[in-house]
Write a protein that binds this DNA or RNA. Structure first.
Lengths: 354, 354
DNA sequence: GGTTGGCACTCCACTCTAGTGAGTGCTGAC
DNA sequence: GTCAGCACTCACTAGAGTGGAGTGCCAACC
């Protein structure tokens, strides 16, 4: 750029994205204070920050440079500086010490997992509440995908004249069901017979890999039932097998913004399970753990940041944790909370005894 | 009250809660316009309303009387009138024609239920979205209670070394599960054996009425498994058997209020499943179908109104629909939508084929 | 007696005008 | 490169003035 006089301190110096030590300190101070106060930060507020032992005039000149380089912005002339998305990005990547939960929070987490009980779904639900409490953000928890879990049990339960329920238990403890309509009244014996044939065909396979069944057994009535049940089973695996999403603390979004419109559109996004799950997956796939502002493509969330953390059980990825807040969210805290809770959750899910 | 000169038009005249025909028309006009505009309504805006063929001066005098009687309020002197909770109440009870969905909405409902598919949970979830779309309110749908549904099937599926899953299928198609920890490794045969003893003990009973099992069969190992499983089964019935709640369109609350605080506290309530379910139940139990302002006891919802509608399947109550909006919500529309959707949902759930 | 037009009054919402203060950019000296 | 000093900018606030929507009251009317 021609406006930048002689880029004496910028990128080229010590490597890509590097910043003068003092400029980094100033940026750090601005971001930190802005996260706390949500007010534009002036040069005077920064002089006492560690690593910045210069006068406010010098700070001002550095801030001007930081603004030229896109790390800071001014809401208007003669106002303090606000971090840009790029500024937050630098903060997250190079500044902001690892961060850890405060003792109170750690205590909360410990207590939560010590007393955690119930089935996985309700635990994930409550986990989202815990995360929201810890971080004051909206928390999203995506449950483990059952795509690769093997079928442990298949059962057909008669419910009425011509209605039966297909109940499938997977190795990871998930239960899926699908009601099936039968062409004729079918007695329990035949139903059990069909179920055992179904089991022989599908037991041990992941639900997505159950193939169509062709070989008939002679009894046409049983064959029909089996055929219908196989179809139902396969439809379970193929269709909208969207991972389950739990959103906690969505009310915190209302506190984060004072523009009601923003709140509305953000909440609107949160209502769309598919969008949220895809979004979290996309962010993870790009290898990020934080997406700031417009870095993810979802336009209504432009003033938000998202922290994601995979949850792994015995080494394999089994879910995702997401934290949604304004771009001026407390990144170190959010990252620490996501990490701690993610780890503990992974441990918990891998314990045989729950 | 001494201020009321001679209560010539009030309650006493034609029965409890009755209002002069013209006053009723005026109240009607004020409520209707305020619902639309959210602005205080002046006397001039009312003179053209049907049933009010008098001058604005007369309207003013009537409005003053309505205010004395608590139906209207003024934000400040020299401002128009706003309905009070009592005013809304009168509107809902005596004014506001039955109301019906517009053709577009009716079409939407028809289409929705024609294409409705999938299991009950996902259908209820999507129903909440439909209701929110129709009414621009936040919709709450409480699924049928499984308290009285008889157990159709009980199964124990081994999951790991010492872990099994208890899977219970109820007559209404609901599936509940509970993982159980076993003291020892137990083979499939013994597990099946235990399950069949469990079935003999509980089949046909509602889950809440399964009693403790005492009679031993001689084989101590199987006995232990059965005992553990019975406990698990009973805990399923007793504990937090909270009806499932689906909330749709919570983002609409953000549009309804311009005070972010209100939005926040209302959303906070919506996050508490138990509170919401209890609230809806309480309102139904008092025989109301609309609760306005402080009529229900939940303080953070003081500026909200709730429309409730039971959903009955084959005559028995099987769920609840709730609509939450600001007190100035469109009551006729909300009531109509809740009724129509409730009816169709009830029908849908009673059809054997889904 | 209820209804009405007229009138004085109220008070919000808006505009305009300083005045204030936090903050900036620039400059010349060290 | 750093810094003190200085002029400048501009949001924010308070106060005054104004317009308008709306009211309450009253005397007159049917």
């Amino acid at each position: 750029m021609p406006t930048t006089d002689d880029n004496r301190t910028e990128d080229g110096a010590t490597g890509a994205g590097a910043l003068d030590a003092r400029k980094a300190a100033i940026l750090n101070a601005v971001v930190t204070e802005y996260i706390g106060s949500a007010q534009p930060v002036g040069s005077q507020h920064v002089v006492d920050a560690p690593g910045v032992s210069v006068s406010s005039a010098t700070v001002r000149s550095d801030m001007a440079a930081l603004e030229r380089d896109g790390y800071l912005a001014q809401p208007h002339t003669s106002a303090g500086r606000i971090p840009t998305d790029k500024g937050y990005r630098f903060f997250v990547d190079h500044l902001g010490r690892p961060g850890s939960l405060d003792p109170v929070g750690r205590q909360q987490v410990r207590q939560f997992f010590d007393h955690a009980h119930g089935e996985i779904e309700s635990m994930l639900e409550r986990t989202s509440g815990l995360l929201a409490d810890l971080t004051d953000c909206t928390a999203m928890v995506v449950g483990p995908s059952h795509e690769s879990a093997a079928i442990r049990s298949v059962q057909l339960v008669g419910l009425g004249q011509r209605l039966a329920l297909l109940v499938v238990v997977l190795a990871d403890g998930a239960v899926q069901k699908q009601s099936v309509e039968l062409p004729d009244e079918v007695d329990e014996i035949r139903l059990a017979d069909a179920a055992s044939r179904l089991a022989a065909h599908s037991l041990g396979l992941p639900i997505t890999q159950v193939g169509p069944l062709v070989v008939p057994t002679g009894d046409p009535k049983t064959d029909t039932v089996v055929a219908i049940a196989v179809d139902a089973l396969r439809s379970l695996g193929s269709a909208e097998a969207v991972d389950q999403l739990f959103v906690g603390g969505s009310s915190r979004m209302a506190a984060a913004f004072d523009a009601v419109d923003t709140v509305r559109s953000v909440l609107g996004i949160l209502e769309q399970q598919l969008v949220v799950v895809t979004l979290l997956r996309d962010i993870l796939d790009t290898g990020l753990s934080v997406a700031i502002g417009t870095e993810h493509g979802v336009e209504p969330l432009a003033s938000c940041a998202i922290v994601v953390m995979p949850v792994s059980v015995d080494g394999v990825e089994a879910g995702t944790i997401g934290l949604l807040g304004p771009t001026r969210m407390n990144y170190p805290l959010a990252l620490a909370a996501a990490r701690v809770v993610g780890d503990r959750l992974g441990q918990r899910l891998s314990e045989p005894s729950r």
